[in-house]
Nucleic acid binder design. Structure first.
Length: 257
DNA sequence: ATGGTGGTGCGACCA
């Protein structure tokens, strides 16, 4: 089962890319972030031929997440129970017995800003949510746009990003508190080196210059780790015309033994 | 270099 995540930066603007990529990628599950449209504007007819099962948490102009699957999505939930967050950032469902939690983590704007404080509060709430989900569903994938580069290997020029938003110590510690629940960064099960990125700023020709960060992650739980057959970043869509600033990332799970 | 580009939607916002 191939499970992918992609911050599409507007599903309306990116629909041609999404259709092209799902045909090429063969993903069984696709988690999207920043769809930036209301539920009623979701292009079900365009995506239904590939993904018969869809869970959408839309929002006008900003945020919005969706979970698409070829096989049945069970136990779909939206948001974090008990956390009244007006922003559409969380959708979860179960496919073939694997819990899949799709997150669009708060960006945070800049260290110390009100949005940064919201980010840290949000990440603390989501830690508790993930702990509760893991207790119910030991086989779990947590994926999405994390808006945190886990460590300096994930940053093209760590000095330039030192203690800046996406790389600051409190954000990294919040992410580590998630990993401490028994989650693993699937990409790092296969690749230990630097120079692997999933997001490049639109400005200053950052992609062409290799100025990227790895902030889109696929975490797998302890119980699922033995089934991880591959993990990676699919860079091609970032080279297409009028791309998202993020490119898809994925994990492949071997069949249950 | 405190800029730069892109999406939404038509003026600021958010990233």
């Amino acid at each position: 089962m191939k499970i992918a995540s992609w911050n599409v930066n507007s599903l309306k603007a990116r629909l041609p890319h999404v259709e092209r990529w799902i045909a090429e990628s063969g993903a069984d599950v696709l988690a999207m972030q920043e769809i930036k449209l209301l539920d009623e504007a979701f292009p079900h007819l365009m995506l239904e031929p590939t993904y018969a099962f869809r869970a959408v948490s839309g929002q006008k102009t900003y945020n919005g997440v969706a979970l698409l699957a070829k096989r049945e999505l069970h136990e779909v939930t939206f948001g974090v129970p008990g956390y009244d967050d007006p922003q559409a950032r969380v959708v979860a469902g179960t496919v073939d017995g694997v819990r899949i939690v799709n997150l669009y983590v708060v960006n945070g704007e800049s260290v110390g800003s009100p949005k940064y404080r919201y980010k840290l509060e949000w990440m603390a709430r989501v830690r508790d949510y993930l702990a509760a989900e893991l207790a119910r569903y030991p086989e779990m994938v947590v994926l999405g746009d994390f808006n945190v580069a886990p460590d300096d290997r994930d940053v093209y020029k760590p000095e330039r990003w030192r203690e800046k938003v996406l790389c600051s110590t409190p954000e990294r510690e919040a992410l580590q508190s998630w990993l401490a629940l028994g989650l693993h960064d699937s990409f790092r099960l296969f690749e230990a080196g630097p120079g692997h990125h999933s997001w490049w700023d639109y400005r200053l020709m950052a992609y062409e210059r290799g100025w990227g960060l790895r902030i889109d992650l696929v975490l797998v739980s302890d119980a699922l780790k033995p089934r991880v057959a591959a993990a990676g970043i699919e860079r091609a869509p970032r080279t297409w015309e009028r791309p998202s600033d993020h490119t898809p990332v994925f994990v492949e799970l071997a069949p249950r033994p």
